[in-house]
Each structure stands twice: as structure tokens, then as C-alpha cells.
Design a protein around this nucleic acid. Structure first.
Lengths: 221, 221
DNA sequence: CCCGGTTTTAATCAAACGTTTAATTAACAA
DNA sequence: TTGTTAATTAAACGTTTGATTAAAACCGGG
């Protein structure tokens, strides 16, 4: 006589998200090629055939992992952009913080598996293989285009090429603090506090805004 | 009757570097777990046992790939630091350019397999697994510490934590332009030119220096 | 010419891989 | 209860993996 589960159709959803959670950790820690379906199934406490049952194959599992997190990040960023531009044009600081905060906060939210996804997004964001390029194009290019347009509205003197560079530079800085490798603490003998979200956001925003403004002045030299 | 090779001991060194070249491409394109010894041997036109003969196992092969490129980068950076501080204190722009130029130039030097190594260094620089952490610690922490010290000499008002952050931010921006994923060109409809090394160096240096100065002003707000 | 050490080769090992299959179990409607 | 569908399982498929071995080919110095 097995223990009767209290919930009604309690089996499905638990397995699906348990697989996503385990896959997120595996892909982040070992890379796509280094992560194994078998180990993911073991970690998720699920039969390995379940992974193919729900996600068909390893590639689609990877895509599902990215889709889950990118969805909530981009929802927050789109809502923030909607709100920022319904009245006056905001300052660059307000805009950049709105763009980077959802990303940085997810990276610091360990309850939501954020630090694993952080390393994952850094990985495919800087890779050139088909799978990585597809993940970036599909899940992050639309919001990137909208963000670049927003930067140009806030700083009309910025040429488009400079705005693109500024956005990508800012994102790469934000991503580097999402993936907590322990290097900052090591190099600073413990002085740098990765865990303080507000201090991190403030530092990155200050750095990125000053950098973007410098790109505007850089052309006429 | 085989074609007689003109060179004297022509077999050894060709195999060793052919293996390193092929491994560099494989690790960069597929990650450590995705790259296979067999494919590397095939690409290098070498028997697969040769890889174990020269490099024992996959881990030491990876380490050898990193050691080769990091060696020449760090040699250039150390020489530049020696020269910069033998007289007056240089400006932040001169210092930052000296630190970032060797990295960016290697990434743009396709003859030296640079763009493959660029993606590789970005990958392990933002990963937390043992192998990646060891590569960063062993091959890049010493020059990082010296560079952070140099930044603090040029900007004495910068606290150490801010200097560490500034250095890491600057490096992450430089690395992001090394790994040419084609995203900048895609998002700018071809306006951003990844191939112009001088323009890239100028943009990154301007962005990074303004960002570092902003970190100095950020504390008293 | 043959010798000694290095380099290269083909063959093979056990283990792990992604995926598929067919059978079993659980849940709910009729 | 029975019929139907979805969820889960154990077992196996063929392939590929990193690594090892023992023998062959190559080479310059005696």
C-alpha cells in the first residue's frame, strides 16, 4: 500500500520542473556536452525516459531551460520600458537600471536557481555555435533591439553603432556579476561582497552609464 | 617510396602544435565536455593515441591549450607595465589600453587562432567548475593582481574593492568583444564593425576608463 | 649497417552516452 | 467495475567516449 499523494494530478508538474531545475544546474556546471541525460535524471529523482517523454531530446531540453528564465526576465524588462516611456523621457541612469536590474536580481536569487542560470546565460551569450546563437537570437534579440532603441531616445546624440556597443558592453558587465565565480572575492581578499544586490546594481549602473556617455564623446577625438 | 620530408626532426613539433590548434578550436566550439579526443585527432590529422602520448589526458590537454596563449598575453602585459611605471605615473587611459590591447589584439588575430581562444577564455573566465577556476587562478590571477595594483597607483582615491570591480568589469567588456559571435553586427544591421581592431580598442578603453572613474565617485552618493 | 630511443600506428577495453521500446502503474469518467 | 488516457518504469539498442596496449616505423649516431 503506497502512500497516497494528497494532490490530484500530482505527478506531472513535479517531474517537469524537477527536470528543468536539474538540467539548469547540469548545463551551467558542465556545459551542454558535459551534462548527461542520465545524471540529470538522477539529480531530478526521475526515470531518464521521462526526459525524452516531456522534452523529446537534449537540444529541446536545453531550449526549455533557457525559455523558462528568459521569459520572466523579459516580461519584467518590457513592463519597465512601457512604464518609463509613457510620460517624459527618463534619465540614462533610470533606463539602464531598469534594463539591468531584472537580470542581476535573478542572478542573486538562489531560491530560483538564479546563479546556475546566470552561468548558463553567460556561456551561450558568448558562444558562436548554432545552439547558443539560436538561444540568444530567439530569447534575447527582441528585447535587445527594443533596449537599444530606448537608449537612443534617451541619448539622441548617440549613433546607432555606439548605442549597440554600449548596450552589449553594459550587458556583458551585468552578466559578469551574475555568474558568481568567487574571483572578485579572491582577488580582493574578501573585500568585494557579491551577495549585496543593491551595491552590485549601483556599481554596475554607475559603470555602464559613464561608459555609454563616453562612447558618445569618443567619436570627435 | 614515401616523399622524404625536407626538415630534420620534422615529426614531433608539428604533431604537438597541430594537436594544440585542433584542441583549441574544439574546446572553443563545443566546450570541454562536447569536444572529443577522437575528433581533435582527426582534425589535427594525427593518430588519437598521440594526444595521450604528449598530453596524458584530456584535462592536461586543456591546460596546455590555455597555457600557450595566456603565456604570450601576460608577457606582453607585464612588459607594458614595466615600461609604464619606470618614470612618471601614467594616465588611466594609457594604463587601461596597455592592459586590454594584448587581449583584444589576440582575439582579432585569426592567424594565431585568436578568435577560437577568445571564446575559450570567455567560457572558463565565467565558469565555476574546478577546471575553469584552476585555469583562471593559475594563468590569470597573478597578472590580475598586478593590474589592480597599477590601477590603484594611477587613481589613489579608488578603494581596493572598487579597483577590483573596475578591473573585472573592464576585462569582461574586453572579452566580450574578443569573442566575435556576430551579435553586434546582427543587432546593428551591419553597422558595427568587429574587424576594425583600432576602433574596437578605442571604444572599449573609452568605455572602461569612464566606468572606472565613475566607480570612484559612486561611493559618496 | 645496425642499434637505441623516440614517434606513430592499429586494435582493443570497459564505461558512458542519447535514445527507443514495450510493459506497468496511476487517475479519472462512464 | 470497466475503458481510456496519461505518467512512469526497467531494459535494451547501437554508438561513442577516454584511455591503454603492444607492435611497427622512423631516425641519427656508432
Amino acid at each position: 500500500m503506497p502512500l497516497a499523494p494528497a494532490v490530484q494530478q500530482g505527478r506531472q508538474k513535479d517531474s517537469r520542473t524537477a527536470i528543468l531545475d536539474a538540467a539548469e544546474r547540469a548545463f551551467a556546471d558542465l556545459g551542454f556536452g558535459g551534462a548527461s541525460i542520465r545524471a540529470i535524471a538522477r539529480d531530478a529523482d526521475v526515470n531518464q525516459a521521462m526526459i525524452h517523454y516531456y522534452y523529446q531530446n537534449k537540444d529541446q531540453l536545453f531550449s526549455a531551460v533557457v525559455a523558462r528564465r528568459s521569459g520572466e526576465i523579459n516580461t519584467r524588462r518590457n513592463l519597465a520600458l512601457d512604464a518609463l516611456f509613457d510620460g517624459d523621457i527618463p534619465t540614462l541612469e533610470v533606463l539602464v537600471e531598469a534594463l539591468l536590474r531584472p537580470t542581476i536580481e535573478l542572478g542573486h536569487d538562489n531560491e530560483r536557481g538564479g546563479d546556475a542560470y546566470a552561468r548558463l546565460i553567460v556561456s551561450f551569450n558568448n558562444s558562436a555555435d548554432d545552439r547558443s546563437r539560436r538561444a540568444a537570437t530567439e530569447h534575447y534579440d527582441p528585447i535587445a533591439r527594443r533596449s537599444i532603441g530606448a537608449i537612443m531616445r534617451v541619448m539622441p546624440e548617440l549613433e546607432k553603432a555606439a548605442a549597440v556597443r554600449g548596450y552589449l558592453f553594459a550587458i556583458s558587465v551585468a552578466l559578469s556579476v551574475m555568474a558568481k565565480t568567487g574571483r572578485a572575492s579572491r582577488l580582493s581578499d574578501g573585500l568585494c561582497d557579491d551577495t549585496d544586490t543593491e551595491e552590485t546594481v549601483a556599481s554596475v549602473v554607475a559603470f555602464a552609464c559613464a561608459g555609454i556617455r563616453a562612447l558618445a564623446n569618443n567619436k570627435q577625438k
